[in-house]
């Protein structure tokens, strides 16, 4: 079932017309990997899909509805992760998750622990986010994506700062998400460890 349809997107970054007439669709259980050289507009595309950038022309439909017309319904099913991890340096990992994911979903402390275990966060000690390494912060941010339990993942370079084990972990949680019928649109150059049948590519030039 095709859930997300982008039709004839044109995007400018400042004066630059970076994307000209881009159309694609993503079905349930599939992952769209966006690649392209630096400056090709990967982040711009993802931000536009998320609704953070205005669309000059074209449309994005989610479940058959225009995402601009009803962005609340669209956003309630969207897990977004970009370069900023949105972690608060003065809060520990569980605290960060409790507040940032807790704004949108109800869950128990056990769920938080489970999500942290899924992303391989070593132990939920009282360490504050600013004392963690960049890779660990990235893992906690991915745990938030899991906790949000959304149908659509929009992830911009989710595996940056992750070591090889971290990338394997990401492949596992992504595969599990797709298995459950979720969608993902991911801008990354690294190979995604998901079945080829579930993967589609989009190269921006």
């Amino acid at each position: 079932m095709t859930l997300l349809v982008a039709d004839n997107l044109h995007l400018w970054r400042g004066e630059l017309h970076v994307l000209r007439g881009l159309s694609f669709s993503v079905a349930a259980g599939r992952c769209l990997q966006v690649t392209g050289v630096n400056g090709a507009g990967k982040s711009t595309l993802l931000r536009a899909l998320a609704g953070l950038l205005p669309l000059e022309s074209g449309s994005v439909h989610w479940r058959g509805k225009d995402t601009r017309a009803d962005h609340y319904a669209f956003h309630s099913e969207l897990a977004w992760l970009s370069h900023g991890t949105a972690l608060k340096g003065d809060l520990s990992a569980p605290e960060n998750l409790r507040f940032s994911a807790g704004l949108r979903r109800q869950f128990t402390p056990a769920d938080v622990d489970a999500a942290l275990a899924h992303v391989g966060f070593p132990h939920s000690d009282g360490r504050l986010a600013r004392q963690m390494s960049a890779g660990q912060q990235r893992r906690v941010a991915l745990a938030r994506v899991l906790l949000l339990d959304c149908a659509l993942w929009l992830l911009d370079e989710p595996t940056s700062n992750l070591d090889t084990r971290g990338q394997d972990m990401f492949g596992q949680i992504l595969s599990a998400h797709l298995e459950r019928g979720g969608l993902a649109i991911i801008a990354t150059h690294q190979a995604l460890a998901v079945p080829a049948a579930r993967l589609q590519g989009l190269e921006l030039s």
Binding site: A50, G51, L52, H71, Y72, A73, F74, H75, S76, E77, L78, W80, S82, H83, G84, T85, A86, L87, K88, G89, S100, L103, R104
Partner: peptide
């Protein structure tokens, strides 16, 4: 704004003005 939290609020599906 710097750490991306505002972005998360803006796409949270909750009324941003309220947050």
């Amino acid at each position: 704004g710097q750490d991306g939290s505002l972005e998360q609020l803006a796409v949270s599906g909750l009324p941003l003005s309220w947050l």
